[in-house]
């Protein structure tokens, strides 16, 4: 056997060995955790988790009157119950749901609060609602953050002192204070101000969700601005010189030459920033926005199954961030190929 194939064999053996080590350590960690929970008599009840995603709820339609059931009319999709009360007034109850169970019969005397109909319906659970809200908040805040970031990034490198100083002030304030504090300021200071003023003028109030989104968008915007600035400055000065020497204006040179090149470079750091944003949205729970973390916290207090639910919560965030990073990786590859 040649020495090169021997070397290859040795490398393969080493690869397999360390691969096995990896899996052993991982299993040991999981096993250890499980063992510890057994020690404190924690009962794992994974079967209780799915109901927080999707559950079958029984809905009851109660009578609001006291009287005699006069008629039960079943059409193709609709059930109509007519009750005539003691004063001779006619009340109708109709239901359009499927799989309806009728709890009374014609001629029954029903009291107020008696159950007329029951039906089962699948409903979206609180965790899935929270996940959806997290996704929604992240997407909207990313879009706004992106727009703010691009504008601020250009302002940051502008030779106009007003633009430049506005950009620097904004970036430094945002980057220098904790997101949690910024959320409080948006909600308790700006939110109170804006909504109080709106009430004074008799206008509609802005719901807390939008202050949460605003805080995330301005926070991300500052970081995106720095990423954009770095991306633009990383493009060779020769590109600007070449485009300007052809008679292009500053704006043309930026739009056609510099920014398209910079954009390719800033996709990976942007991906990181947006993934951070998804995770940072978990802080919005403190201003009563029921995103994934807040939803999990609520479920934990009612179900008393913190171990399962917090793991599920983490996995759901992982699904979001991993999908996002895959998406941006795909985008990056496509841009490089074109």
């Amino acid at each position: 056997m040649s020495s090169s194939s021997l070397l290859k064999k040795k490398q393969n053996r080493s690869f397999v060995f360390w691969g096995i080590i990896f899996f052993i350590v991982i299993s040991f960690c999981i096993g250890g955790l499980y063992y510890c929970t057994l020690k404190i008599d924690y009962t794992w009840r994974w079967y209780r988790v799915p109901q927080y995603f999707y559950y079958n709820s029984e809905t009851k339609i109660e009578s609001e009157n006291t009287g005699i059931v006069d008629l039960i009319n079943k059409k193709d999709t609709e059930i109509v119950i007519t009750i005539i009360d003691d004063n001779g007034e006619v009340h109708q109850y109709s239901c359009l749901e499927k799989n309806v169970h009728i709890e009374i019969a014609k001629g029954d005397y029903v009291f107020k609060g008696d159950i007329l109909l029951t039906y089962n319906k699948w409903k979206v659970g609180i965790l899935l609602q929270g996940l959806w809200l997290t996704l929604k908040v992240s997407i909207i805040a990313s879009l706004f953050g992106m727009v703010i970031g691009i504008f601020t990034g250009f302002a940051r490198i502008s030779s106009n002192p007003a633009f430049k100083w506005f950009a620097i002030t904004y970036i430094e304030i945002i980057r220098g204070s904790p997101l949690l504090v910024q959320i409080f300021i948006w909600y308790f200071v700006l939110g109170t101000l804006i909504n109080t003023l709106l009430t004074q003028y008799g206008l509609l109030l802005i719901p807390p969700l939008w202050f949460g989104i605003a805080s995330l968008a301005t926070f991300t915007g500052a970081y995106v601005a720095e990423i954009v600035r770095a991306g633009i400055q990383s493009i060779n000065k020769g590109q600007t010189e070449a485009s300007r020497s052809l008679g292009m204006t500053y704006v043309q040179s930026m739009t056609y030459i510099i920014f398209p090149q910079a954009f390719r470079r800033i996709i990976p750091p942007l991906a990181g920033q947006f993934i951070s944003l998804v995770k940072d949205s978990s802080l919005l729970g403190i201003i009563a926005i029921r995103e994934l973390t807040k939803a999990t916290r609520e479920v934990v207090t009612t179900s008393l199954q913190p171990f399962e639910l917090w793991f599920v919560c983490a996995i759901l965030y992982l699904v979001l961030t991993f999908t996002l990073s895959m998406l941006l990786q795909y985008l990056e590859k496509r841009m490089i190929n074109s």
Binding site: G238, E241, A242, R244, S245, L246, G247, P260, Q261, R264
Partner: peptide, 20 residues
């Protein structure tokens, strides 16, 4: 200056073609 530059072609040592 953009009008002047349009009338004055320039060729650089490092080409500076637009790579994209």
């Amino acid at each position: 200056i953009n009008l002047v530059r349009a009338e004055v072609g320039m060729v650089f040592q490092s080409f500076n073609l637009f790579p994209h």
